[in-house]
Amino acid sequence: MKTENELVLSKADKNKAAARLLEMYEQMFLLRSYEEKIYFLFLEGVMPGTIHQSQGQEACAVGMLFDLRKEDYMTSTHRPAGHCLAKGVSLDSMMAEMFAKSTGCCKGKGGAMHTGDISVGAIPAIAITAGGMPVAVGVGLSCKMRRTDNVVVCFFGDGASNEGAFHEAMNAAAIWKLPVVFVCENNFYGASTHIKLVTNIENIADRASAYGMPGEVVEGNDVELVNEAATRAIARARKGEGPTIIELKTYRRCGHSRNDACAYRDKVEEKEWYAKDPLIISKNRILEEKYATAEELEQIEKRVLQRIEDAVEYAKNSPDPKPEDALEHVYAV
């Protein structure tokens, strides 16, 4: 028999879990809708540049970054939109950057692959494979030397795991016990090359033991599982116990970049993964646990879609940079 007090507590816990999952779902839906909108605008030829999208990988970004503070940091890759939205970069400023406007988060100088906003801890994305990993080591070193308990979450892909920078960064973070959480989003393909063709082990996280740090393999499309792993690694980092590798098995719903029909992927494999879509997993759980009704979820989705339309309007109405603005910001003053 549970006491009345315990029943109240467990109800409170359930409410908390419900609120968290609903918020994570809303964030994931924002990431998905943002990138879908970008994709259509890109196809329409409204946007310049290229795109590297992360539809299908939303649970990785949201689950990992959900409990970070504004003062914590995040480093990202050539596929940064989801990470940046989840770290709190403003939707308007990201959309404006995609439209190459002066109100963009990088004032039109960065573009999709360098999205970021250091004022919310999102280091402008580094689009050289594994290039952000040594930088994350420096950010972690800085957090430690300044005697803060801030942490840095460092995203990289399976392809990055065979770069020299990966090894140098992992080793340094481990020997100095830096507050870095290394997050491998293993979507199985470095552009068109399957990870099995270029790596002899099953799990990238198995390499953790080579550096004397913990490694964990997690179902990357389940936002709650990702968040649980994140909680463990972040707590460890905050306590000064050092870095962790979290490998999130996930899958792109999109091509590597523009005009990629993914002819190198097996269609059965695609079907299996699409059935494990992170939004579907979360939505089903919300309905099963009765955290919300289908109508309530629809309301959430409507709200998000409106925010995206507003961001597009904002971006379209924003001024272009002046051509000669290109000559500014080469040096900090």
């Binding site: 994350a136 420096g138 950010v139 140098e168 340094a172």
Partner: peptide, 26 residues
């Protein structure tokens, strides 16, 4: 030795760590 930091032989890391630390207050 915390402020005079001897590193592994890892030039990519040395430069990258300098960049990351410099961007965040060091």
């Amino acid at each position: 030795h915390e402020r005079i930091l001897d590193t592994p032989i890892s030039e990519i890391m040395i430069a990258g760590a300098a960049v990351g630390a410099a961007m965040t207050g060091m």
